[in-house]
Every structure is written in C-alpha cells, then in structure tokens.
C-alpha cells in the first residue's frame, strides 16, 4: 500500500487494510480468530473486564502508578503481588519435598492445610481489592514479569 493510497483512505479504508494484510499472511487462516484470541492479553479479552471496572473504577494498569487517588489500591496490589510470589515459592518447595518423599503423612497434611488456607485468604483479599491473578503479575522492567516461570 503506497503512502498516497494511505492519505486517500476514506470510507473503504477497512477493506483496503484487510486486503493488504491478507497478502502478508500464510498458514491456517481459517483459525485467525483463535490466533487473535490467544494473542490478546487475558485482561483485554472480551468478558474479562477487571472487577474494579464493575465497581466504577478504572482497569488496573500493568505498573504501579503513584497516583494519590489510587495509592491505597496500588499499595494493596503491590503487597498482594509479593505475598502471592512467596506463596507460590513455598508451594513449589513443598511439592518438591513431597516428590522427594522426604515428608511423612502428618507433615504433608499440615503443610497442605497451611498452603490451602493461605490460598483461600489470598482469594478473599483479591476479591476485596477487585484484583485478578494477572493483576498481580507485575512488570519488573528488564527482569521480566514477577510471576514468570
């Protein structure tokens, strides 16, 4: 598509855009809607609006903003993200110990109950602050995302 054509874009622009893009696509085009769904961040998918949005607030951004109007909520998000990270680390460590057979049945039961309660408490707090799992996956800049494997 030439720039002249772009400048002349009018009511038929969407049609032109679609035609030009199709020339650069190959593969299973019948599955295009599936690809689009998978390439859309979870929080932006249809029907995946933030619970905070339901309460009349704004969707939670990927980064913490030092905004006086939202500082309490953003602080809660940061604290919960750190607790969630620690909870997952504890759980993985516990799973490795179960796999290695280094825990007795009583110990497995106690450890499992502790982790279960911790998960339930986290779910309660996320509901209270209108957060979803992906909201706690904070961007750490060059280090990547907090919850990345």
């Amino acid at each position: 598509m030439s720039t002249t054509e772009m400048s002349a874009m009018g009511d038929g622009a969407d049609e032109d855009v679609t035609r030009d893009f199709d020339q650069r696509l190959s593969g299973d085009l019948a599955a295009l809607s599936e690809f689009a769904h998978e390439l859309t961040p979870r929080g932006n998918r249809p029907g995946a609006e933030s619970r905070l949005g339901d309460l009349g607030g704004t969707p939670v951004p990927g980064r913490i903003n030092a905004n006086p109007d939202t500082v309490e909520h953003d602080l809660a998000k940061l604290v919960l993200a750190l607790i969630e990270l620690i909870r997952r680390l504890l759980e993985k460590q516990a799973l490795r110990r179960v796999e290695a057979g280094s825990l007795g049945e009583d110990e497995i039961e106690r450890l499992g109950q502790t982790l279960l309660k911790l998960e339930q408490k986290m779910d309660e707090l996320k509901t209270t602050f209108g957060l979803q799992d992906e909201d706690l996956d904070l961007n750490l800049g060059p280090l990547g995302d907090l919850m990345a494997e």
């Binding site: 650069r24 190959s26 299973d28 690809f35 961040p41 996956d137 961007n139 060059p142 990547g144 995302d145």
Partner: peptide, 30 residues
Amino acid sequence: LRFLLSGPWPPYSFVTPPEGGERSANSRQQ
C-alpha cells in the same frame, strides 16, 4: 498444528530495547 506466518515486516522485534524502559519478551501486555 495450526500455523500462522506473517511478513515480511520491518524488523521491529530485533531493535535493541532501551534499558529499563521496555517490557520483557515474555510480557503479556503490549
């Protein structure tokens, strides 16, 4: 499997990102 290949494009993905100013490659958000 279902494949989707797109291109050719200018090499957007290979430009060196600014230090600390870019989300990582495994980022889920644009």
